[in-house]
Nucleic acid binder design. Structure first.
Lengths: 144, 144
DNA sequence: TAACTTGTAACCACTTGAATTACACGTTAA
DNA sequence: TTAACGTGTAATTCAAGTGGTTACAAGTTA
């Protein structure tokens, strides 16, 4: 099990919109950078648009950032591309036996624990911004 | 996307082994508590055995805990049932375009960030033990 | 009007999860 | 020693999700 690559592709798209902000970032152009097809890029870009992260309009070529670089956290991207339904990172088996002490209480006991772990993950994603990612990309590029 | 219920079932099994330690915990008995089938329980129990968490032998009815309750963290269970390959909680799109600044550096930039987030998740799971879960189950059961 | 782009839907191949069935093999007790 | 029972494991099935691809309606611009 892995969290969908939509997340990393979303980060890729937003970084590219910044680094290539002088150019026109069509779905076709972005797809070539990501190495996938334009339809998938449009789908993800649509999700980022719904989350208020990018501007993109039917018929008009190119997407642009809708927020400051430093104001877009990876958590926002994570949630935007909908890779994990809210509070459902961990799957919990359904319908345990109510006639059993464990079965009767396992779900209520585990849920808050899973929730804490999930929040820890989200917190870690929440402190990193696309600006950080763009900086990392540019720095790495210099050293090569 | 959700992390496989094997994880929560694994926790269920271990908790049951403790709470029903006076009885004989066959795969059939456990399956009735979890509300699934015995074959799946045997599969997961086998994983827990490989991780050194339970004792179970062919032909001999019942599984037992192989470690102290307080010495089994949820992280161990998480890793035992193999729900997430090592360092691969987040999927990263393959083969981005090396002719593009972003494509050339995105993977190396993102990986350490994802790694930090994944470790935060694991850390949260590492501080909770099966003993805590069992205590939670018993406490919840009293209040109902 | 023609060319181009976005937004979507539809379809496919592939992987994974979970349920289920079946059976070989180990153990135990009559 | 044989019958009953339990574990280990493989095979099958069904459902769901992911990512790739094609196709096309609708918006925009030259």
């Amino acid at each position: 099990m892995s969290i969908s690559t939509r997340f990393s592709v979303g980060i890729h798209i937003l970084s590219l919109l910044e680094i290539n902000k002088e150019g026109v970032n069509t779905s076709d152009f972005i797809a070539k950078s990501v190495n996938t097809n334009p339809a998938l890029i449009r789908k993800i870009t649509g999700m980022l648009k719904n989350a208020g992260l990018v501007n993109v309009r039917p018929g008009i070529a190119g997407a642009t950032l809708a927020k400051e670089l430093s104001d877009i956290t990876l958590l926002e991207v994570y949630q935007a591309v909908n890779v994990v339904s809210d509070k459902e990172l961990f799957g919990i088996h359904e319908n345990p036996n109510p006639a059993c002490t464990v079965g009767r209480n396992i779900q209520d006991t585990i849920e808050p624990i899973f929730s804490v772990a999930e929040l820890a993950l989200e917190k870690a994603l929440g402190v990193v911004t696309i600006e950080d990612v763009v900086r990392g990309i540019l720095e790495k590029d210099k050293t090569n």
